[in-house]
Design a binder for these strands. Structure first.
Lengths: 338, 338
DNA sequence: AAATTCACCGAGAACGTTACCGATTGATTT
DNA sequence: AAATCAATCGGTAACGTTCTCGGTGAATTT
């Protein structure tokens, strides 16, 4: 049986004062003497008083809850972003309600539709990769709910966004492969339609163009983000007559898939075929040969997103900001010919 | 500016009926005709009505929120457990408020103290490894809040618990090393005081005893759960005069640390020194030589914990259950002498 | 001494919803 | 024709909190 928690009324009754005074004393606002305030605080501690956020939420029309919507949490990037979000939320006394979509557009839509905005102050979201339409997000924003997108942002929606520098990261990664003497560079990309898939593809293409390298349609393969997808993509590439001699993967998990498959084919990764990824997943340091990559500022993206959302919540009519954080090239064995 | 969402009153006003009737119609309970019910539902859809959970929570003294408290989310085990929890919660229309403690006892305590149980139906927790006392959990349980522990359970507290079979997993892992001809088996363990550290230690010790293998105090090292801790532990072992010829690590991350360090020392992992871990982190398949391990049923633990909590919530005076799920030995290269 | 200010406190409404009880119908029974 | 009943609905209090406003007494000013 659930016991009854002490309320503001109980404190008032115990001290023989009014609930208004107790309320003011607890919030340390105006119109309350130091003496009574002390009494109230002591009594609150004694009765183990805990504020009822349902009640405050009702009257103030603001709870201290943020919702976070993510494709998944079982990978390095998203779990690290979440930790960053959590860090800021914790220091500002906000709670996080976490929803994972399993990268399923239908589930994402269902979650959004059932969201209770009366008990939510704002929304942080990284969209599912299969999302065909983003109207449901637009509706929420039109309703005045503060929303911040991160990493996988929805194009064409006017709100704050935080992402890594996908274009330049991809450009740098590809340039690095070129500088190391690889000449036939393939790209195993993410699902089409996602903003950052396009950005990384463009960075790759522009790097090739700048250095007059060949661009082959067949060397660009779109699929999902898993290691298995990376393995399949590489198998496809190696069925071609004109095989590439290097691979730039849209993320580390796919790059790991590529390395594993190359090793199975007894191809010397690095020496024969160069591989570079994107993320700096801890796995990239563990695998051998170790994987060169572009380190993403995942933790900072989380922190920044949450800070932005809190600003959004505090000032109504906050002007949307787009923040792009730089990545960092990390050179390991998989991209070195030596 | 945040727009005002349609309330039950708006629906009542638009249809010129009372709020009580609308409330009953929306919940599809007794005392409402099919006709008015249809009208109400249509109007609700038209006005984009969304129930205010603060209000329902106030009167019903139950929200559809569960809190999950975890040491961290950036590793395979916890993120997978969480995904399992989320799966069950989602199908029962419960929201999850996630707190990460960063394995910091002070932070854990602070989170618990600030928890608003008026907007929480129950609690799922894996305790921080530094937790010296668990009185704060006992208080909550005494207050009648349903609590389920998983993985890292607090000893001496009477409530439901879900864990993997740590003892038998450790026993099996150690026996496997013995069967493969290793004779001087060390254990790099978790922090002392944690229940499963002890269970895995006991499984290790009993396996050694059963096969008449030597037990050396110096071959048992307690420290944290990170890869770095594994590296340090191995360095300590290799400073001994009487070095072990195999290592059973309390988890895969520490085992990876051990492998990395052994490789640095040009010691052939598997052939010279055997290593086995615990978890079946995806990393264990990636590293070379690949890491033998005990696979934990992380996803099932998450699902089971959440199911148990929901049962707890539904029936008051639910009798606490302890569920132990079996692990599975996965043999890879790191423990094979061939 | 009267008027004004100040510091502090209390009463009551409001937030959106549900629960309880009573009222109103029309139909059915006696 | 009177009484009973079932079906449907409305009024009101309650949940715990905050907010607005008005009130009290004391201190200060005129």
């Amino acid at each position: 049986m659930r016991r009854h928690y002490a309320t503001i009324k109980d404190i008032a009754h115990a001290l023989n004062i009014s609930v208004s005074t107790v309320s003011r004393a607890l919030r340390d606002t105006y119109d309350v003497s130091a003496d009574t305030r002390k009494l109230v605080l002591e009594m609150a501690a004694k009765l183990n008083y805990k504020p009822n956020f349902n009640a405050t939420g009702l009257v103030k029309n603001s709870t201290h809850n943020l919702a976070v919507i993510l494709p998944g949490i079982t990978n390095y990037y998203f779990s690290t972003v979440f930790t960053g979000i959590q860090e800021i939320a914790y220091s500002h006394n906000y709670n996080i309600i976490l929803y994972v979509t399993n990268d399923d557009a239908a589930r994402e839509l269902n979650i959004i539709r059932n969201l209770s905005f009366s008990s939510l102050d704002g929304l942080l979201v990284s969209v599912s990769s299969q999302a065909d339409s983003c109207d449901h997000f637009q509706e929420i924003i039109d309703d005045g709910i503060p929303v911040v997108f991160f990493d996988r942002v929805a194009a064409g929606i006017r709100t704050s966004k935080v992402m890594q520098d996908d274009y330049n990261g991809a450009f740098e990664a590809t340039t690095h492969l070129i500088a190391n003497g690889y000449k036939k560079i393939a790209h195993i990309a993410g699902p089409e339609g996602l903003t950052f898939t396009t950005s990384r593809l463009n960075g790759y293409l522009d790097a090739l163009r700048k250095h007059g390298m060949p661009i082959r349609k067949k060397w660009i393969i779109h699929s999902g983000f898993t290691q298995e997808c990376g393995e399949n993509d590489l198998e496809k590439l190696w069925k071609l007559n004109d095989k590439p001699d290097a691979v730039f993967a849209v993320n580390d998990r796919k790059a790991v898939g590529a390395i594993v498959t190359l090793k199975k084919k007894n191809i010397a990764v690095g020496k024969e075929v160069g591989v570079i990824g994107f993320t700096n997943d801890p796995m990239s340091a563990i695998i051998s040969p170790s994987l060169s990559t572009i380190a993403e500022p995942a933790f900072e993206i989380g922190k920044k997103s949450c800070q932005l959302l809190l600003n959004h919540i505090k000032k109504k009519n906050f002007i949307p900001e787009e923040i792009i954080l730089p990545g960092k090239l990390i050179i390991r064995e998989s991209s070195i010919r030596s």
